[in-house]
């Protein structure tokens, strides 16, 4: 669960983590009902309606207004979005 919350960038307090771990365990237990199914040879269904080759011509539209967009950002500076220092990433 700690790995999952790290992947999802969700910091859960210890109480919340405990409660959620119990709830998720219960659900996952319930979801074991499909283990009984014979799914050999069943094609996964990823798309509700079969469409293919949806393509767009290479024609441009006008950019959004930068000031309008940056005005919605939590922090911006010199025409760009500002974020705290990137540490904890090995880049």
């Amino acid at each position: 669960m700690i790995k999952v919350s790290r992947l999802a960038r969700l910091s859960l307090g210890p109480e919340q983590a405990e409660k959620m771990t119990a709830q998720l365990a219960g659900m996952l237990e319930h979801f074991r009902d499909i283990d009984a199914l014979d799914l050999a040879g069943v094609e996964p269904m990823t798309q509700p309606y079969p469409i293919k080759n949806v393509l767009r011509e290479d024609v441009e539209v006008e950019s959004l207004n930068r000031e309008e967009v940056l005005g919605q950002a939590p922090a911006a500076e010199s025409g760009r979005f500002r974020v705290p220092p990137i540490i904890g990433f090995d880049v």
């Binding site: 999952v4 992947l7 999802a8 960038r9 969700l10 910091s11 859960l12 705290p84 904890g88």
Partner: peptide, 29 residues
């Protein structure tokens, strides 16, 4: 928060309600 990863976690922790977090956790898993 003082760094990016901490900002991500704090923002998402306080911004999302319990049910949303539950489903994000479930789906990530």
């Amino acid at each position: 928060a003082p760094d990016l990863n901490a900002m991500y976690a704090a923002t998402r922790e306080s911004g999302f309600g319990e049910e949303v977090k539950r489903r994000i956790m479930l789906g990530t898993y």
